[in-house]
Design a protein around this nucleic acid. Structure first.
Lengths: 260, 260
DNA sequence: CGAACTGTTGAATATCCTCAATTTCAGTGG
DNA sequence: CCACTGAAATTGAGGATATTCAACAGTTCG
């Protein structure tokens, strides 16, 4: 019951909090944002939410759980462009194509809310500043991908895994799901490999190496679905390894149109 | 003189042709787009246009020449997220940050035109549909990065280089600068390496391998700056190697707001 | 003409993958 | 409650792939 309540609150405030990080919203804007998503949808662990190539008419707000986007290569290998965490807008690149370019898979039980692109189209007319903020969010995702590309392109396994851990920790913290240097890792090592362009086996060896060097600790007390708990022991050295800094959103960018 | 004339025409039509591929534009929209860029600026070969970390107040239309965006890693290695060709909008991710996240470098003599973000901000109020198309363009760039990430993440050297050749050829063709399977390559092998996450040395070996297998031919008749000419001999096999298909823009997406 | 850049090649090495076997544990069905 | 199933983690051995280091030749540019 408590989680039920929490979720209801969450779905009202969630699409908004990302935008709040970008600008002071007017009441009209808050209302417009709140009206965007459909009712929430639950997805069971390990199920596919959207399949690559399917017709696509909108994107989704991620309310709870861990979700991956992935693309399949002809030789059967997969790559995960991004691990999505609560608060993310997922599937937005599909706005540029009639068919979905990635597969969305729930790693854990997850909750999403659908937003038809058509409703965003109307937002461009009614709330230009929100439309601009939506565009800013898209550009931030682009920057995220550029950083990821740099990581995978030039980083060694140790640097990639170090970056992954820092990145997930920071993003979970922002969503209020981690703190004190600790978090529950809901991905298999295989999946981490598909995010970083490594094999699961090599991710395993690299994690062990990081542990042996005293940068992190792994525990497996989480009786639920065997999730591992990661603790970051030496934040500074881990960050140094990570190569790419974490980016912060900019508040009230100068070029934004005035609010309505 | 001929090129002078050509350029003047180009700068009027150029920001527009990318948008024309996305929707039928009204006269008012064409005028609004034409009013976006400042006067054209020339950049000498090998010069830096924008440096990473500099203050940023807008982006640029690329009129002529080859330009790279790049980010520098702490250990001195560089990664090039994208090789930019004429017709591209470059530096647009900077709209989400006050400081430029990449360095823009002219590989050849190049021509650009600056577009202040503030002018785009006004576009969101005056021409919602153009703003939406601008957002679509950003999402398409995001898809490009996802594909690139997949290529670098799971592709072998041969696949990466094959993809690079096909991609550059297709994009040059679209800009009217290549045809008949041939194009002039204005990047060093070192730069190709920085695009693909390989060393220049290994790019060299891989190109030789592709040539030995009869997929491409390299000639060096271009006396200007020692540019190599690449000819694609076996398009089908090269495309098969490339792993990732080329994406096409979608025309008149359903969700776009009505034109003004 | 000298300096700098680029392409080219070889040899040795580092990094990561593949294949395979083993173990542990959560979830399932009887 | 217990045996079974399957996903996930772990480890070893050997091999494939790409890097590093170095040397040299040919071009372009000032």
């Amino acid at each position: 019951m408590a989680t039920q309540l929490l979720r209801s609150e969450v779905i009202l405030t969630f699409p908004i909090h990302r935008f709040r990080a970008l600008a002071n919203l007017t009441e009209a804007e808050v209302n417009a944002l709140s009206a965007l998503p459909d009712e929430e949808v639950h997805h069971a662990r390990r199920t596919t939410i959207v399949r690559e190539g399917e017709e696509s008419t909108g994107f989704r707000l991620q309310i709870a759980g861990w979700i991956t986007s992935s693309i399949m290569m002809p030789d059967g290998k997969r790559l995960i462009p991004k691990l999505h965490l609560p608060g993310d807008m997922i599937g937005t690149p599909d706005m540029a194509q009639r068919r979905s370019i990635t597969t969305l898979t729930a790693l854990t039980d997850a909750v999403t809310a659908f937003v038809p692109s058509e409703r965003i189209g109307r937002l461009f007319k009614s709330h230009p500043r929100l439309a601009a903020l939506f565009t800013v969010a898209a550009q931030m995702e682009r920057i995220y991908l550029i950083d990821q590309l740099a990581l995978v392109g030039v980083g060694r396994a140790k640097q990639r895994v170090a970056h992954f851990i820092v990145d997930v920790y920071e993003r979970l913290s922002a969503a209020g799901e981690a703190g004190g240097g600790r978090f529950l890792l809901s991905t298999s090592q295989e999946v981490i490999g598909e995010i970083l362009g490594l094999t699961g086996v090599h991710v395993n060896r690299t994690l062990r190496q990081l542990e042996e060097e005293g940068l992190i600790t792994r525990r497996r007390p989480a009786k639920v679905h065997r999730r591992h708990e990661i603790e970051i022991l030496d934040f500074e050295r881990l960050n140094q390894l990570a190569l790419i800094p974490q980016r912060q959103p900019e508040f009230e960018l100068d070029w934004l149109p005035a609010a309505t």
